[in-house]
Amino acid sequence: MSQLYIWVVLAVMYLPMLVVVAYSFNSSRYSNWEGFSLQWYEELFNNSAIVDTLNNSLMLAFFSCALAILLGTMGAVGMAKSRFRTQGLLENVSLIPMMLPEIILGMAYLALFSLCRVPFSMITLIIAHTTFCIPYVFVSVQSRLVGLDPAYVEAARDLGASQTRAFYDITLPLIAPAVLNGALLAFAMSMDDVVISFFVAGTNSQTLPVQVYSMLKSGVTPEINALCTLMLVAVFLAIGLFGLGRALFKRASRG
């Protein structure tokens, strides 16, 4: 009974995606099935708008994540070592972007960048995305640090490591999984963001989600189905590879 419920929910979750996969191979532009075809994939690759915006989005997610990893990890590590009056305030304010409806942040950037006469471009996008990516890294690293036994670092110091050395030898490797976790989440968020990008992207720096949004709004677009199918394949491939890698690692470390 309970198993059945789980499967029903998962089926409902995957139903729309299965429909999309099926329709990506439909030779008709409309909903009735007229036979198998790969023409939408061909059109997808020939659609320069999609290819360009996909490039933009990947670049944007990469740079935002990198910056967020840097700022978020350094911040979380530093906060754990610091005691200052505005600490609680800083922590809560830096987490706001995760909590606020995105549209408010989007409008804030739109207004501020216009005021400062900063042209909307990849730079403004990276600033905006980094801002909402930081909390995912920060929170993930922070909770790992809280659970980290201080005795590890103390043991390293006791054995002759300087403070800096102990950080690189002990703390960093031990929080690395948390950094990765936060970064993966941040990457997904950046790749998926419509609302903020909608406000701060320049004409030459449109992101994929915004592009898909305007295409979906304007009408029937079977290329999107092909795109979605490819993304689905990529995600499951990545999960598969990840699982395989972990299994191999486990076997290696057991032997």
Partner: peptide, 30 residues
């Protein structure tokens, strides 16, 4: 002196073995 400069070493209460290093690397660390 900071701990790393003192001629004493410690066996910690819950051992504090570095969980990401094997036995050899733990012992070799110093």
């Amino acid at each position: 002196l900071p701990p790393e400069k003192r001629p004493v070493n410690t066996v910690f209460q819950n051992y504090a073995l570095f969980p990401h290093m094997n036995v050899f690397k733990n012992v070799a660390y110093a």
